[in-house]
Design a protein around this nucleic acid. Structure first.
Lengths: 211, 211
DNA sequence: GGAAGAAGTGAACCATGATTCAGACCTTGG
DNA sequence: CCAAGGTCTGAATCATGGTTCACTTCTTCC
């Protein structure tokens, strides 16, 4: 007996694992899941392919971790806005959708990877799982909105699923093809308006809007 | 010179190719894209793996054909209803969504494969392409609806994308987990109602619905 | 019936990329 | 400094599954 893991070592290991996840996320955002081979990811993190297995049991496990971290942040943010965003349920819904979309635009590559890029079985399963979480969050505001009489009677789960799918689908194309900032802003406005209609909110957004 | 392709032979070849596509479709509906290896598909069609290459240049080409055929049928049907379904734009939209969903329920496995099952790059690309077609169809009715004053001003492309995503997302879960017929009917009602709201149609479907 | 020329077979071949592992190199406590 | 026990490396190994191909089995036409 002469060696025992010391805090310094633990820290280095943890840092390496962390760097691995971070870099893997960047690689995925850049080239998608298909292009993120163990070799490429390891190189990006400055380690050998073999070392990846020091931190994760398999490539799949790493991919799942990458997905969970990134998607988890979004669920977190969306949940915060939807639950404690201020204003009534309808206002929070609009705000949530807008912020979600804005964040996606700020990290196009990653957003695309999370939402739509071809991925293997395990990542697809995670996607499904996280879509359920988004759905649960949306369902909650919709439920609240109907309870408050702001929204018409409806099955909150269906509307929530629809919102999840709608927002994703509307974003996929613009995320893939850059486009101008102005176009992005216009899209955001249309997107939130659509989301409110989808939940049945009384038309407020028309306002001074002309055309 | 002693052999020339005869009509009978051509027919047999065409039939074999056809059977291959049909059986491959069935296999995909059953076990998904991942499970549909060349060997399995060939066996299902009653031929050897090698013979598959008599009809398709690659497994990918076969997969793409399978997808196009199946998805093409749906585009066809949806387009027919949306364009020439009878009634005003709103009525046709409702009808289109309902029929689309109904058809999906009638072929759960296939619908799931087309909409959401993990697939390789090429099939994902087809999926994208076909989603654009659905979108174009929806955009057309929405455009017509707004022109007729039945729907509020909106970007038809955004609404169309949203409808495409929303319908798909709402269906994915129920398609994966069986459920009762009654539940399916209820879902259909909610789904079409949601679609109309999404496009901003004045609430008609509620009947006794107030506000 | 037989030559010419497909079509059909399925085992061998290959490409890809994840995973392993024997050895090199560090860290630690004594 | 040493022994013990990690960590790290990267080339070799494996697994998977698409693709090829030498060979067999039809078909056609003279």
């Amino acid at each position: 007996m002469a060696y025992r893991e010391t805090p310094a070592v633990r820290m280095r290991l943890d840092a390496a694992r962390e760097r691995l996840v971070t870099e893997a996320t960047a690689v995925v955002a850049e080239v998608g899941w298909a292009g993120a081979s163990v070799g490429v990811v390891a190189a990006a993190a400055g380690m050998s392919a073999g070392s990846v297995y020091q931190h994760f049991a398999s490539k799949t496990a790493l991919a799942v971790e990458v997905f969970r971290r990134a998607a988890g942040r979004e669920v977190e943010v969306l949940g915060a806005v939807l639950r404690d965003g201020g204003g009534d349920a309808v206002a929070r819904l609009a705000c949530g959708v807008e912020i979600f979309a804005r964040r996606a635009f700020e990290r196009r590559g990653l957003a695309y990877a999370l939402l739509a890029a071809p991925a293997d079985e395990a990542v697809c399963a995670e996607r499904l799982e996280f879509r359920h979480r988004y759905r649960a969050l949306f369902a909650e505001v919709v439920r609240e909105g109907t309870a408050a009489g702001l929204l018409p009677p409806q099955d909150p789960e269906v509307t929530a699923a629809a919102l999840t799918g709608a927002v994703g689908e509307v974003l996929v194309d613009p995320l893939a093809v850059p486009g101008t900032d102005a176009a992005a802003e216009a899209l955001l406005a249309e997107l939130t308006a659509m989301a409110l209609r989808c939940a049945g909110a009384r038309t407020v957004q028309g306002g001074t809007d002309d055309r």
